Amino acid sequence: MENLLEKIATCIEFGKINKAAPFPPDMKGEDGADELTQQAIEKGIAPGEILSNGLMPGMERVGVKFRENKVFVPQVLMSAKAMSAAMLHLKPFFATGAAGRKGTFIIGTVEGDLHDIGKNLVAMMVEGNGYEVIDLGTDVKAEKFIETAEKYPNSVIGLSALLTTTMANMEKIVKSVKERNADRKVCIGGAPVNQDFCDKIGADSYNPDPQGVVEFLNTLAS
């Protein structure tokens, strides 16, 4: 059983989606995250355990490698695709409540900004680490973040921006969110953002990479 979960983690780490996938070359012809997750369910391994001991360790390894510049965006995207293939088997169990989630994370690129690669990477990494992710897309106004957060009382909001010109909107959104609910946690990220800016606008966390967001959420969930 442990061996099967470790194989799933390895598929996630190296981006092996399914048996037909040619990537990575040294795993060609082998079962991928898709088939192995199905096998794990058929063997009676609990969906929560597959997530906790299969998908999450794989995504964590990729996140750490990405932080250390040992892998780059294409590799992370392959890992995310492998994770998505596995999650298709698990999502029905989460929908029925048969498998628990660690929390809810609402993410979007702020008003005026249409960039989404960084946001998507964070969303994939967070989902792979056991959270429900509500992705609001790009060019998201404060009202949409607030309205969505009110549907999920203990959710955390993540704001992304790639342009220096849209950083001001990030400040506006944090202010609006905190005025509505001072206890709502907001984390920020993106190329022009840093810790000083985070402190200045009253956000709760700044992270330069997706793994940092996961670690912040884990401190709140523990």
Rank of each mutant, 00 (worst) to 15 (best):
E143H: 07
K151D: 06
P210G: 11
L163V: 09
I8M: 10
R184I: 03
K91E: 05
N120V: 04
K200M: 11
M1V: 10
R101N: 05
F93K: 03
M167E: 09
D26K: 15
G100C: 03
A21C: 15
E132K: 03
V126C: 06
L5T: 12
A21M: 14
K70R: 13
K175E: 09
C198K: 14
K28H: 13
N120H: 01
T166R: 06
G189N: 08
F14K: 15
P47V: 08
F66L: 09
A98P: 01
Q75N: 10
P74E: 02
N129S: 08
A98H: 00
K81Q: 09
E42V: 10
F145Q: 08
A99C: 02
I146C: 08
I12D: 01
T164Y: 02
D135S: 08
F105S: 04
V110N: 00
K185E: 06
N3A: 15
V73Y: 02
I45C: 12
C11F: 12
A21F: 15
F93R: 00
E127F: 01
D26Y: 15
N194W: 09
L55N: 05
M124R: 02
F216W: 09
I45S: 12
F14N: 14
T37Q: 14
G63W: 04
G48R: 09
I134S: 03
C187W: 04
S52W: 01
E150S: 12
L121W: 00
S79T: 02
G97E: 03
E68S: 10
G29N: 15
M124K: 04
C198D: 12
V186D: 07
V126Q: 01
G212R: 14
V156G: 07
D204S: 11
F93V: 02
M170F: 08
M27D: 06
A85G: 01
P47I: 07
N154Q: 12
K172D: 05
L121T: 00
L114M: 05
D199F: 03
P22D: 12
H115M: 00
S52I: 09
T37N: 13
T96M: 09
E49R: 13
A221M: 05
N69D: 06
M27G: 11
N18Y: 08
K172Q: 06
K81E: 04
M167Q: 07
V76Q: 08
Q195R: 13
K144C: 03
A203S: 14
D196G: 12
N129W: 00
A46M: 09
G44H: 08
D196C: 07
I12A: 06
M124T: 03
F66H: 10
N154A: 04
P210Y: 11
G54I: 00
K172F: 01
G130L: 03
D26M: 13
P74H: 00
K141S: 10
P74W: 00
M59A: 05
I117N: 04
G15Y: 12
